[in-house]
């Protein structure tokens, strides 16, 4: 049974290597169908590595454990990153990753909660945080110490239900609730179409203990997660500035694309390049 590791105990280098492993899985998955939400997945890889291999308490062999920490991926289309993390965590088989987005695969391009390890149906944006509030209330009734982590995105903040949930979380003093706000600057129609800045100020104004970090800096991510452990009556928001395509220069520098589709030969080139640089990094 994995427990959240004591603060300060994180092996940053090991977590960085885990993030590289997740990115490698994602590239392989996207190659299978020639497409996917790879930019978002690569951007959030460091956060998922920190969560699944340092911060979260869970048992891959007992997913229904009542006192597990919950991770809710509200942006269901980031599933490519979640599948990679769940595979590395031993919750789904690594071999299954090859089925990403294929007919009859459990590893949909947008999450359904019928896949093991998925705590919520993401994808209809604006749903995750409110369900996180409900889970945190339920855990409080049960006097459980378990916490609830909800990933959501900058574009998703445009859904009014996000703020309905944000209001209620601070009202109910849900200090075991952590919002991971992925600000990658892209949404379906391109670069963020409606200015959401100042993001951190908005969360603070709604009563959340808020930090703002480079979401691709493992040390900063681990540090912000450690700070969020405090049980002080306030829900926690971590504003993550992430780079879509992080770690893969050809995707980083491409037009900021919500959905990435290229032919197989190009994928092979990208993967070969990634393996070369990742190998050097390790």
């Amino acid at each position: 049974m994995l427990r959240n590791s004591p603060p300060g105990s994180a092996d940053i280098g090991a977590l960085e290597r885990k993030a590289i492993q997740l990115r490698h899985h994602m590239l392989t998955m996207a190659r299978g169908q020639g497409q996917g939400y790879i930019g978002q997945g690569l951007g959030i890889a460091d956060v998922l590595a920190a969560l699944y291999f340092h911060e979260l308490r869970y048992d891959p062999h007992n997913l229904a454990w009542a006192d597990r920490d919950r991770f809710l991926l509200s942006t269901g289309h980031y599933s490519i990153a979640l599948w990679a993390a769940l595979a590395e965590a031993g919750i789904i088989p690594v071999e299954e990753l090859a089925t990403y987005g294929a007919d009859n695969s459990r590893l949909e391009m947008s999450t359904l909660d019928t896949t093991p390890g998925v705590e919520v149906i993401g994808g209809s944006l604006g749903h995750g945080l409110g369900q996180g509030v409900g889970q945190a209330l339920g855990l409080r009734i049960d006097k459980s110490e378990a916490r609830v982590f909800v990933e959501l995105s900058d574009g998703e903040m445009q859904e009014g239900s996000t703020w309905e949930a944000a209001m209620s979380a601070s009202h109910f003093k849900l200090d075991g609730l952590v919002a991971l706000v992925d600000c990658n600057g892209i949404q379906a129609d391109g670069p963020v179409v409606l200015d959401m800045e100042p993001v951190a100020d908005k969360w603070r104004a709604f009563g959340w203990q808020t930090s703002e970090i480079d979401g691709n800096d493992m040390k900063a991510v681990v540090g912000a997660l450690a700070d969020a452990r405090e049980r002080n009556g306030k829900p926690k928001a971590i504003v993550l500035r992430t780079l879509p395509g992080k770690g893969v220069p050809r995707i980083e520098t491409s037009e900021k694309s919500h959905f990435f589709r290229i032919d197989v030969a190009q994928w092979d080139g990208i993967i070969a390049e990634f393996e070369k640089t990742a190998g050097a990094a390790q």
Partner: peptide, 22 residues
């Protein structure tokens, strides 16, 4: 729990509670 005038959140919070066995 009174969530205020926020019916989307009312249903979402109820869903989350149900996921913890309530």
């Amino acid at each position: 729990f009174n969530v205020g005038m926020a019916e989307q959140n009312l249903v979402a919070v109820a869903a989350g509670l149900a996921r913890t066995g309530k």
